[in-house]
Design a protein around this nucleic acid. Structure first.
Lengths: 236, 236
DNA sequence: TAACATGCATGATTTTTGTCATGTTTTGAA
DNA sequence: TTCAAAACATGACAAAAATCATGCATGTTA
């Protein structure tokens, strides 16, 4: 369905200015360019599975990916949403463990794979990149801690509003400027919010009744962002 | 009340084999040793405050510290519990932001402070330490993600049981082998679990009735760990 | 196109959890 | 030691959220 043209080189990649790797030294980028393997994952396909061993990191060229955990009772919890320029798989690699989450394409997605040995060796020889990685990890840790606090303290209504805004921040709008440019099922939204699917459906209907959103199947339009922000009860 | 004798040198510090810094090269350890500043914080005193700028990292020599966030409505959420050998303050430093949490001593605690510039420069020149930091960040991120999932999916009863086990893992028992060696208020336990104080009090009473714990003010004894693990409904 | 599965929607009900009120105990400071 | 404040405990109630049940729409496959 969707068609990508091979980025061919990291030097010409659309993400060369946005990914963490943009801070790596030229010589290493060349090396990565030689060893990287590009692949296309169709919607629903898995990049890697929770529980298996990492053998490299993935860099999204174009597309959308969800990163999700399985809870002890088998329920999905979506941990992160990723887009072009994002790197994934580094957490498990750096702490020397199996993947603690699965990565699944939300739409057809083009991904470059960088082998473990190369990644580690570049990281060893390029202090700048190492600092970028530490910054990335620190930022993710921060986000996780904030999310944790909200999960513990905010009611579902606020969290759903916050999640819609988060989706908008992450993937933005379609060309009409109001439709969220990702199709998520109600269940996926619920697994992002951390609640039951029915609660999510009900609250979305309420948001629609209140005129904050418009619903058309999986298409969600944000009509009144300010109202949503108020509903989310955000401080910053 | 409590008396510490100055560790004098990093080379003789009780934590020299457990902290991340143990992997740093000798020359850097010497440098840290010269520039570090040791301090004692009394119970309840603050090492640093959410919202202020970091100017270094803290290394706990002996004692206990809680790291907590304020939610948007001002309610405390305890993010992490720290003990001797743990480092803190690096997250904000590495991502170049203000502290996103406050650190408060849970009992009289001895802490070494390492200035920002030194920490960064050692990190730049010691790849091993940089990797240790990445591993540390990755581990923390992992823990945060698991906690997030549990917070979203598990009922409070399970989370309280899990929290008691977590406290035990972190701080261990007193010499009697059953009393948790930290005194936390019910409110603090609630802020760790992510629930209302009353719910925590009620459930602790239930646990007591079920014979899993014994309560004597802030002293909590774990009588049946296996039952607790079952109650926590943990997989691993 | 029929048959089926899946996702969406909504009502009814139950369970869980939080809040409010009140009393008791403990703690710490004067 | 005494008193006030804080922490603990518990009951009653309200609110929030999950679960169960059912129906409708949509899409998919034989």
């Amino acid at each position: 369905m969707t068609h990508f043209h091979d980025p061919t080189t990291c030097q010409s990649c659309a993400q060369r200015f946005t990914s963490v790797f943009c801070k790596a030294k030229q010589e290493f980028i060349s090396e990565i360019n030689e060893q990287k393997i590009c692949n296309i994952y169709k919607k629903g396909q898995t990049l890697f599975n929770e529980g298996s061993y990492p053998f490299g990191v993935y860099c999204i060229n174009d597309g959308k990916v969800k990163l999700s955990h399985l809870g002890d009772d088998g329920k999905e919890q979506i941990i992160r949403l990723l887009r072009g320029g994002d790197v994934l798989g580094y957490r498990a690699l750096l702490s020397g463990e199996r993947y603690s989450a699965s990565a699944i394409a939300l739409e057809d997605t083009q991904v470059c794979f960088i082998p473990k040995e190369l990644f580690i060796s570049v990281l060893k020889n390029d202090t700048g990149l190492a600092f970028e990685m530490m910054k990335l990890l620190s930022d993710e840790l921060h986000k996780a801690e904030v999310k944790l606090t909200h999960l513990a303290q905010k009611p579902i209504r606020e969290r759903l509003a916050e999640t819609l805004l988060f989706i908008k921040e992450t993937y933005g709008y379609e060309s009409d400027g109001i439709t969220l440019s990702v199709r998520l099922s109600r269940e996926e939204i619920a697994n992002l919010v951390g609640t039951a699917t029915e609660s999510t459906i009900r609250l979305l209907s309420e948001f629609k009744k209140d005129g904050m959103v418009e619903l058309d199947g999986k298409k969600i339009k944000i009509l009144r962002q300010k109202e949503l922000i108020k509903t989310a009860n955000l401080q910053d």
